[in-house]
Simulated assay, not measured.
Amino acid sequence: MTSPYTVRAVVEEVTALGPFFAVQAHPPGTEPPGPWQPLSRPLLEARVTGVRDSLAAAGGQPPGAVETRVAASVAHLGLAARLVSPALAAAVLHGLVLASGLADLRWQPVIGGPGPLSLPGDAFTDGHADSPTGIADELSSRLLDGPLRELADAMAEFSVSRHILWGNTASAVNGAATMITSSRPELSARTRTLTSLLLERSPLREAGTTTPDGTFRRRSCCLIYRAAPDRNGALCGDCALSR
């Protein structure tokens, strides 16, 4: 495990990459004061409802016009991005892997942007920094099969298919990599190598594909187009439905 001092330094460097990377740290085994909360079922329900209301308002529609599964998918994509972004950045910058489970993380119920995220001070562990393959293996077992799978399990209860949920996760990985390379161009090669290795691992292997020119395309859709009037909204750039 990294020392508390190292964790603070990592948090500062990761947070500097942008809003989706911003994290705080709380002492391991302690409960940070409100408004920090665990990602409970009530918190997820409130987030899905808030996202549905926001999507409906953007289209000038009543909340009931937006399907719950659409709002849940969009909410999941945002939460997955909040988990993936700092985790990938720590791996790229320092060869560290987020080893905490979903129950160890704390959130603030904010709608309309990246929700505040706090990690326990012992959240990161050494991911074999001398080997990108070793780091990708650790990320797969500790992150993909850890809090990201737990998050997918929780969001699947809102009638969102696993195919869509893992597509959201793969899209979040690619999006985080794009933001890292934009902010820190000198990290481009390392970021893309690690991202490619991670996207090759199950269940992300089945969730998307990367073309020879490096363009990522998911094999599913986050469904956000269905939130617009007549379910005729714009598609995301990496959507399987885009042509």
Rank of each mutant, 00 (worst) to 15 (best):
A57Q: 03
A57R: 00
A58E: 14
G59D: 03
G59C: 02
G60A: 02
G60K: 00
G60N: 02
G60C: 02
Q61T: 01
Q61V: 00
Q61Y: 00
Q61M: 04
P62K: 03
P62V: 00
P62C: 06
P63Y: 00
P63Q: 09
G64S: 12
G64N: 08
G64D: 14
G64P: 07
A65C: 01
A65W: 00
A65E: 09
A65N: 01
V66F: 00
V66G: 01
V66L: 01
V66C: 01
E67V: 01
E67W: 00
T68C: 06
T68R: 11
R69G: 04
V70A: 05
V70H: 08
V70R: 07
S73T: 09
S73Q: 05
V74E: 02
V74A: 04
V74H: 03
V74G: 01
A75Q: 05
A75P: 05
A75C: 04
H76C: 04
H76S: 05
H76A: 10
L77Q: 11
L77A: 11
G78C: 03
G78I: 02
G78M: 06
L79S: 06
L79R: 10
A80F: 01
A80Q: 12
A80H: 02
A80V: 06
A80R: 13
A80Y: 05
A80D: 03
A81I: 02
A81D: 04
R82Q: 15
R82S: 13
R82A: 15
R82G: 13
L83G: 06
L83F: 14
V84H: 11
V84Y: 07
V84T: 14
V84G: 13
P86S: 09
P86I: 11
A87D: 11
A87T: 14
L88I: 14
L88S: 14
A89N: 11
A90Y: 05
A90Q: 13
A91E: 07
A91M: 09
V92S: 11
V92H: 06
V92I: 12
V92G: 09
V92C: 14
G95N: 11
G95S: 12
G95K: 13
G95R: 13
G95P: 07
L96V: 08
L96N: 13
L96H: 13
V97G: 10
V97E: 12
L98H: 15
L98V: 06
L98M: 15
L98K: 06
S100R: 09
S100D: 06
S100V: 12
S100Q: 09
S100P: 02
S100I: 04
G101K: 13
L102E: 06
L102Q: 14
L102N: 12
L102S: 12
L102Y: 10
A103K: 08
A103G: 15
D104L: 08
D104F: 11
L105P: 08
L105T: 12
L105I: 12
R106W: 15
R106A: 06
R106I: 05
Q108G: 03
V110Y: 12
V110W: 10
V110G: 04
I111C: 06
G112C: 10
G113Y: 11
G113D: 05
G113C: 11
G113P: 14
G113V: 08
G113W: 14
P114M: 07
P114G: 12
P116V: 05
P116E: 07
P116F: 10
P116G: 10
P116H: 09
